[in-house]
Amino acid sequence: MAGEGEMSNVDQQSMRGFSACLALIRRDLILTFRSPGQAINPMAFFLMVATLFPLGIAPDREVLSELAAGVIWIGALLAVLLSLDSLFKSDQDDGALDQLLMSPHPLPLLVLAKVFSHWLTSGFCLTLMAPLLAIMLHLPSDAFSALMITLLLGTPVLSLAGAIGSALTVRVQRGGLLLTLLSLPLYIPVLIFATGAVNAAMQNMPYTGHILWLSVFLVLGVCLAPLAIAGALRVINE
């Protein structure tokens, strides 16, 4: 009987943690809807970066289709980085971060919820926009599905890894450049496998292996990154 009581207690606690996460995601999404610039600016940036490449290199169909995978992925990577700067900083400014730190629910879980809502407003939107860029850059249509799958699997990893840097630089004035320095090395594996998959798809080669590796990175990121982010937030705000 006592055991059952404990079980339900644990269940209740995890339920409460879960509903706290949902509330957090809802709050972040509402905030983004009120000031949609936060979500739109990275998308505009993404589009502009993709425009610069034909202007800077050559508008030839062959050249562009060769470069397309790399250009789209590097553009997405930089756009996510730009949006990460404000991930914890705006919460720090309005005091919401202190509330988060004092909450009775496990901090890694809450942080994971925050990163998820960030991904919804950045990485996910960029993924939805990617077909447009793929058409502009003449990416062969065989590679469209590979591009979308890699973006869906890869951009959450970018959000997770970048959130570590974002948490570490939350107290730093004008920490945007520093955030870039800290995060870009962590993005390299994702970039390699994602563009590898798209290029393989362009040559009609199997790319399941790449996709599986990206999924491994995503699982690793979901398991480990929240711990590092929570640790960083605690340390910086001590």
């Binding site: 570590i164 962590l186 594996p189």
Partner: peptide
């Protein structure tokens, strides 16, 4: 924390490169 994050990533980076 950053050094520990880096050291977890070094084998991943090395493998992917």
């Amino acid at each position: 924390i950053l050094s520990l994050v880096g050291v977890v990533n070094i084998p991943i980076i090395k493998f992917s490169v």
